[in-house]
């Protein structure tokens, strides 16, 4: 399967590559993968990773080993919105267990699963650096802090209702 990136993405990839010395093009791998993952429905297929390898003139294995090391890259399809709830100490003592349980019940899925309509994926993650504003979660580039049940209802409605009446 052929993988194509938008002109905009290619422009961004070139801007990133220019930040490193010419002979160190491979240093652009992490930021380039962030750009690419957004282009390809939020996850990286082997074909996509191979394409990145050819752009950066490295071996495909060098991309695979990086993708599987870092938690922000997905190698399997995910929902349109990946909800990542922080569950480490400071969030835990401020009630993250309840936040996770509430979302599980509300979305009818367990942590690690995606709703059947492919809209939400629920993940429990480790510290996101928002301990003073706990409990919190991240969706894409957005942080949602000081969470309450009402706030969760609002977030799910706001995002989900764009795609389905269910939310």
């Amino acid at each position: 399967m052929d993988v194509h990136f938008s002109q905009e993405a290619l422009k961004e990839i070139n801007r990133i590559i220019a930040q490193y010395p010419k002979e160190r093009k491979n240093s652009a791998l992490l930021p380039v993968l962030h750009v690419v993952q957004k282009e390809t429905e939020g996850w990286l297929s082997p074909e996509t990773m191979d394409k990145v390898a050819s752009i950066l003139e490295i071996k495909p294995i060098e991309v695979y080993e990086v993708v599987t090391f870092y938690t922000m890259y997905f190698t399997k399809p995910v929902g349109k919105y990946v909800i990542e709830v922080c569950q480490t100490g400071p969030c835990m003592i401020c009630g993250s267990d309840h936040i996770i349980k509430y979302l599980e019940d509300k979305l009818g899925i367990k942590v690690g699963e995606t709703t059947p309509d492919n809209i939400f994926t629920l993940r429990a993650v480790e510290c996101l650096g928002a301990c003073g504003y706990a409990p919190m979660l991240q969706i894409g580039e957005q942080y949602y802090e000081h969470l309450t049940e009402e706030k969760l209802d609002q977030i799910i409605h706001e995002l989900g209702s764009k795609h389905s009446d269910k939310y």
Binding site: Q19, S27, L30, H34, F69, T71, M72, V125, E126, C127
Partner: peptide, 10 residues
Amino acid sequence: LYVHPGAGAY
């Protein structure tokens, strides 16, 4: 000066 993002690794 450039900014380089990581990808979720403490």
